[in-house]
Design a binder for these strands. Structure first.
Lengths: 244, 244
DNA sequence: TCAAAGCAAGTGTGATCACAAATCATAATC
DNA sequence: GATTATGATTTGTGATCACACTTGCTTTGA
């Protein structure tokens, strides 16, 4: 009876090997659409068709329709009464609504994270900050995609530290919903001669490294409010112009 | 050219007729599963199969699998690495996590609602309260299903008044996630000689009718915390018993 | 000339089939 | 007699098809 020995051997093997996992086509479609949505690759009010996306992603309609259904339930997309689906349009009310929810939930998440982030996590977000600075140093080529990605990594590295399996998916849903709006804001920033976004992130980092939950929350609120208030004023200006 | 007359006639018809709308099988399956989940008809850790549900609901597998996918993305169900799906098990961490999120978000929603509920809405929730009392009056037959439904109506009538299209779906997701737990708690209440649940609701109503947002929030927190803390202590007792 | 009817292409939804992976029960082996 | 191997059944996944509804365009009739 060498059961114990075999068991131990198996454990040794398990320690060496990473679980391979399986990724369905539907999962890939879903992640791809998510990425596009958060990155703002789709415009607000744009309608999406199952077959069109299936062609673009080179699969059949089946994985696409299931991914679309999932995105609709998280309000990342909108099902019209005609049964067609579109990315939700931007309205003033929706903008305010989203910002309020984000302040509430992401604020809570960062306050929780402030007490739980160790030097390891702090180092990680500092690395992301450094990458950001590096990118800005050679500013001749402004890479909006990379900017969005880094911003996302920075925030979610923090949120992951909050230790709440319930809050994080909600934050993801909020990002999904505000993604299309934010992209518009970022472009507007670019052409309006943007101020230094990184300074907000630096303030967050210093607050977190001193475990100052209150300061972290306030810095975060300032950070995420900026594009919303910017977009808000721009929207109001457009509305006023349309009325004339 | 009788265009104006025709137009007017069409408007008259439209005023009489209600839009019929269309409901897909998938939608019905989804609502049905939602109802079952919130009502706690499924036990925590129970695994669900597509074909099994399709048979139970007398449809094909197609609408069921899409509905399951949607429920998985809102964390109402859990996809195991084996690709089977189950209703998430109860753990202490998850319980605390859910309660914290519910206090945060539902608290905010009721605070917003406090400023926005008119006499009309107040009357509606008072009606629900009256129904509750009436049900308790003939207490020989305790109808847990009806209790759950009334509780849900009471809370969501309030949340609907908060005027946030972003917060409400999040609250629904939270109810979906805590539904299976709550049912366990309600059964436990029943057999432990429950205290009057309605008193918490009465306090909420009085706070709302005086537009006292702070009091409303506190009463709500007390209301939703009760089953969680109860279940929490019960779970800890079980864990201690299992360890011996 | 213009509006309304009719036709055609496109789209979502549900059913069915094929296939691969997982699970379970039975049999074979040490 | 316990453990491993093998086979059958079940299950999820993706593809394809049929049907109904929508949409946009063309044609027809006044």
């Amino acid at each position: 009876m060498q059961k114990a020995a075999i068991e131990k051997n198996n454990e040794a093997i398990a320690a060496q090997l990473a679980p391979v996992g399986r990724e369905t086509v539907q999962d890939r479609v879903y992640s791809e659409l998510r990425r596009a949505l958060i990155g703002g690759l789709f415009e607000p009010s744009q309608v999406l068709t199952i077959r069109g996306l299936a062609d673009a992603l080179v699969t059949s309609t089946m994985p696409v329709r299931e991914a679309l259904g999932r995105l609709i339930t998280e309000k990342a997309l909108e099902a019209l009464p005609n049964r067609s689906v579109r990315v939700p349009p931007i309205t003033l009310e929706r903008l305010d609504d989203l910002l309020r929810a984000r302040i509430l939930i992401e604020g809570e998440a960062i306050a929780l994270a402030a007490a739980r982030m160790g030097p390891r996590q702090i180092a990680t977000i500092e690395t992301i900050l450094a990458e950001w600075d590096e990118m800005r140093a050679l500013k001749h080529k402004k890479d909006v995609d990379r900017e969005v990605t880094l911003n996302q990594s920075f925030h979610f590295e923090i949120y992951r530290s909050c230790g709440s399996a319930v809050l994080i998916p909600m934050i993801e849903s909020l990002w999904l919903q505000s993604g299309p709006c934010i992209r518009v804001a970022i472009y507007a920033f670019s052409e309006a001669g943007e101020v230094d976004t990184a300074q907000y992130h630096r303030r967050i980092v210093t607050a977190l490294s001193t475990q100052d939950a209150q300061a972290a929350r306030e810095s975060l609120v300032a950070d995420i409010s900026r594009p919303f208030t910017f977009l808000r004023s721009k929207l109001q200006a457009n509305a006023a112009k349309d009325q004339t």
